[in-house]
């Protein structure tokens, strides 16, 4: 008996082959059921938004909706830009230069997702300890470059993919 157990026979092969095919089949059935919950084509189709920025005065900002999320477009004054650039990178929880958060030559335009990186609330503008944004939900403070300075949020507010179509239009996405 023990001798027979050790020997790989036709039945062992059939068992292994059946389990393998069964597992692949099960995976093939489960994956569509899981993947159907990911964003559908209609959601993906909303991937770009064009915004007219000609009416925004320096120091002011607007909020537009992109893929269901608010996007802040702020036209910063020279003082605000220089203040954002005077910060030492050592003081930042998520070190990033202000220059890397804007398009070169368009430094006054800060375009970022208005979504707190903690748990997704919309931060309030011109509030908080760093004159930038403040999230009322759990108390995260952002500076004039949208970088996290204080509070539970782990990273700076996200910069979406965007480009200047012309001087008065920004395409987000």
């Amino acid at each position: 008996m023990s001798k027979e157990e050790k020997k790989v026979n036709r039945r062992d092969f059939l068992f292994t082959a059946s389990y393998t095919v069964g597992a692949v089949g099960l995976g093939a059935v489960v994956w569509p059921l899981v993947h159907q919950m990911n964003p559908d084509k209609a959601q993906q189709a909303l991937a770009t938004t064009e915004v007219d920025i000609s009416q925004i005065e320096p120091g002011k900002s607007i909020t537009v909706l992109w893929r269901g999320k608010p996007v802040f477009l702020k036209r910063r004054t020279q003082e605000e830009i220089s203040e954002a650039r005077s910060v030492s990178l050592k003081d930042l929880p998520d070190p990033q230069k202000d220059e890397d958060r804007v398009k070169k030559g368009k430094d006054e335009w800060l375009v970022m997702l208005g979504v707190c990186t903690h748990l997704g609330c919309v931060p309030l503008k011109d509030k908080g300890d760093y004159k930038g944004w403040f999230c009322p939900c759990h108390g995260s403070h952002y500076d004039l470059s949208g970088r996290i300075r204080k509070g539970p949020a782990p990273t700076n507010m996200e910069i979406p993919k965007f480009e200047f179509v012309d001087n008065n239009t920004i395409k987000i996405g």
Binding site: P39, K69, V115
Partner: peptide
């Protein structure tokens, strides 16, 4: 994103 089925709620 998978839970939302979109890029936000």
């Amino acid at each position: 994103t998978w839970l939302w089925g979109a890029y936000s709620v």
